[in-house]
C-alpha cells in the first residue's frame, strides 16, 4: 500500500488514543467513585477513596434490589429474545423471498414502527395490556417486547435473506423439500450470522429498555434493570445516597462489559451487515 509518514502515524495514534481515553475515563471514574462515601464524592471528587466502601455495593444489592432486578430482567429478556428471532425470521423470509400482493405495504408497515415515538403509544398500550389482564406480569411484558422488537428485526432480516444465494434453496426444492423444511433446515442455518447479531442487538435493547416497563410494571418486586436504576436516580434527588447509585451502575455495567467483550465481533458484524441491507 501507499506510504504512511511517521508524523501521520503519530498523529493518527494521538487522535485515537485521545478518543479512547474520552470513552473509557468516565467509566473508570464511575467505578472508582462507587467505592467512596457520599461525603467524599461531593467534597473531594478527585481524591482516591480513603477506605474502600464495599458497603455501597451491599446497599445497592440488598436495599436497592439490584440483584432482583437482574433476575427479573433475565426472566423477561431470554424468552422475549428467542421468540422475537423466530417470529421475525419467519416474517422476514416471506417478505424477502416471495412476491405477493401487499408485500411492499407490509414491509413499510413494519418499517414505520421504527420511526414512531414510543412513549406516545404508552397510554393506549397500557389500556390494552390492562384489558388483557397482563399488567404487572412477565408474560405481558414479553409479548410487548417482542412486538416492539419486530420492526427493526424484520427490517434487518429481510435485508439479510435477500443477500443469501438462492441456489441452495432452489436445489432443496428440486429435491422435494416442502417450504417448511426449506425454511427450517436450509434458510435458518444459513441466516444464523444475521440471527446471532440480531439476537445480541435485541438483547441489548431489551436489557436497557426503560419506557415500556415503566408503564407496564408498577410492582417494585418485578422491576426491570433500567427502571430500577432510574428509580434509584430519582430517589437520590432526595436521599443523597449517590455512592450506592454509583455502585449499582458498576454492578450493572460489569456484566454488560463482559458480555460485550465476549460477543463484540458478532455484535459489530451483525449490526453492520443488517443495518446496511434494509
Amino acid at each position: 500500500m501507499y506510504q504512511v509518514s511517521r508524523w501521520s502515524a503519530v498523529s493518527t495514534q494521538t487522535v485515537l488514543i485521545g478518543w479512547a481515553v474520552t470513552v473509557i475515563f468516565p467509566m473508570i471514574w464511575m467505578i472508582y467513585s462507587s467505592f467512596k462515601t457520599d461525603q467524599e464524592l461531593f467534597f473531594s471528587p478527585w481524591a482516591p477513596p480513603v477506605e474502600l466502601q464495599w458497603d455501597n455495593f451491599a446497599r445497592a444489592w440488598t436495599k436497592a434490589h439490584v440483584g432482583d432486578y437482574l433476575l427479573n430482567t433475565l426472566i423477561v429478556v431470554v424468552p422475549a429474545l428467542l421468540l422475537t428471532l423466530i417470529i421475525s425470521a419467519m416474517a422476514a423470509y416471506v417478505l424477502a423471498r416471495f412476491e405477493f400482493v401487499g408485500r411492499r405495504f407490509l414491509f413499510y408497515m413494519f418499517l414505520s414502527g421504527m420511526l414512531f415515538p414510543v412513549f406516545l403509544a404508552l397510554v393506549p398500550l397500557f389500556n390494552l395490556v390492562n384489558q388483557l389482564k397482563m399488567l404487572n406480569t412477565f408474560h405481558g411484558l414479553i409479548l410487548v417486547y417482542i412486538a416492539y422488537s419486530l420492526p427493526f428485526t424484520i427490517f434487518f432480516l429481510t435485508g439479510f435473506f435477500k443477500t443469501l444465494p438462492t441456489e441452495i434453496e432452489e436445489s432443496a426444492i428440486m429435491d422435494g423439500a416442502n417450504p417448511y423444511q426449506v425454511f427450517f433446515k436450509v434458510m435458518l442455518p444459513m441466516a444464523s450470522p444475521g440471527l446471532i447479531s440480531m439476537g445480541i442487538f435485541n438483547f441489548l435493547g431489551m436489557w436497557n429498555q426503560y419506557v415500556l416497563p415503566l408503564v407496564l410494571i408498577s410492582d417494585e418486586s418485578k422491576y426491570m434493570l433500567s427502571q430500577g436504576l432510574a428509580f434509584m436516580l430519582f430517589k437520590q434527588f432526595y436521599e443523597n445516597d449517590w455512592s450506592a447509585l454509583f455502585a449499582a451502575l458498576t454492578i450493572i455495567m460489569v456484566p454488560t462489559l463482559i458480555v460485550y467483550i465476549t460477543f463484540q465481533k458478532q455484535i459489530q458484524d451483525g449490526i453492520t451487515t443488517g443495518a446496511l441491507k434494509g
Binding site: M109, A121, L125, L128, L143, A147, L150
Partner: peptide, 9 residues
C-alpha cells in the same frame, strides 16, 4: 403481535 401491540395503540 405487531397489529395488536403496536399498530392499534
Amino acid at each position: 403481535l405487531y397489529s395488536l401491540f403496536v399498530i392499534y395503540p
